[in-house]
Design a protein around this nucleic acid. Sequence first.
DNA 1: GGTGCCATGTAACGCGTTACATGATTAT
DNA 2: ATAATCATGTAACGCGTTACATGGCACC
Lengths: 197, 197
Amino acid sequence: MSVRHAILGLLAQHPRPGYELRSAFSAVIGGDENWDVKPAQIYTTLDRLEKGSLIKLASDMGEGEQPDRRIYAITELGNQVLQEWFACGVQPTHQRDEFFVKLMTALVSGQADTNRIMQIQRVTVYQELLNTTRMRDRYNTQTEMAQILLLNKAIMHLEADLRWLDFAEIRLEDVKHQPLPQPEVRPRGRPRKFDAQ
Amino acid sequence: MSVRHAILGLLAQHPRPGYELRSAFSAVIGGDENWDVKPAQIYTTLDRLEKGSLIKLASDMGEGEQPDRRIYAITELGNQVLQEWFACGVQPTHQRDEFFVKLMTALVSGQADTNRIMQIQRVTVYQELLNTTRMRDRYNTQTEMAQILLLNKAIMHLEADLRWLDFAEIRLEDVKHQPLPQPEVRPRGRPRKFDAQ
DNA sequence: GGTGCCATGTAACGCGTTACATGATTAT
DNA sequence: ATAATCATGTAACGCGTTACATGGCACC
């Protein structure tokens, strides 16, 4: 969702070949470690962008460039799309929370101890919080603030996860004592007008 | 990533057809509105699970069931995988933060005003926070605690986003004054042993 | 010349989405 | 009979991943 537009932005600077896009993305956004972009994603995304006429092959490769590198440039349409991206906010995606699904699935299936699951998750999140904090503290405030920003965002979300685990642990008993919602199962065909049960 | 295992959990209760899986998932996890699972995802996931022998078609459809509904049941292997899922923690995925990418892309491409982007995002997040809070407060503490748990998690993350925006706004000036990391561009072929620049 | 290493891809898959097809059953 | 409406799918695509292929160039 974001690589697509990042590529447009980098090509808006100047035309580049695929590999340079990869390293530029890493340099600007990932810092080489905590966010790596696979080459395959770059190339497939380039293909899709080209198919949509957001970018095009720049055949005007300057003095003695290798002809086997495909150098891409942004098009007018691509610039337009890029500007639209900048102009609108990123909708916070009520993200698929895998842990919540696991918790609920354990509850309804009765196949696992929810308290144990909570405990395991707490340890996992706490460990990740430690790792991320350590990683952040290795960066240089004077020259790598971008990386610090990114890691701080991750840290704040991990802290939120921990606080939520506390909250959920208290309320989980309530959930257990509530009736399980029964899935509404409807017969085939057009539904009856009057819901005579 | 999570639908797959949720289906296993639901089939561990008892065999079901695809549509019932969909409604059961919504009833247990989504509450009909804030997380809807598309039918297509259920069916394609069922196909993949069957190909992996985690589930199988239950041909023993009881008294007078329609024969055109494919009723699935979990296999021994499926149960094993489900238990493994329960036993390990969900690794918090240093998730692809689209807003961070947008911010950095705007910086390096010089095509947009970062302060404006920050402001737009703040409004977007704040709006979403209001919506989610209102939605949470419509649920009944006594009978729908699961939904409240889910929405509270979203709320806590949105609050973290807002706090991060405050933090980032202060430090963004630092980032602007730091040198842009230049993407390392390497020539083709085997790298030179001594980095004579 | 041969080997190793890397730039530059291609192929195939998993997960999720939207759009569309089919058939059963009830309302009119 | 015809239309409406839902259950139950199929097809195709976008994004991301891992695994593998190819060919240029430095090194021995």
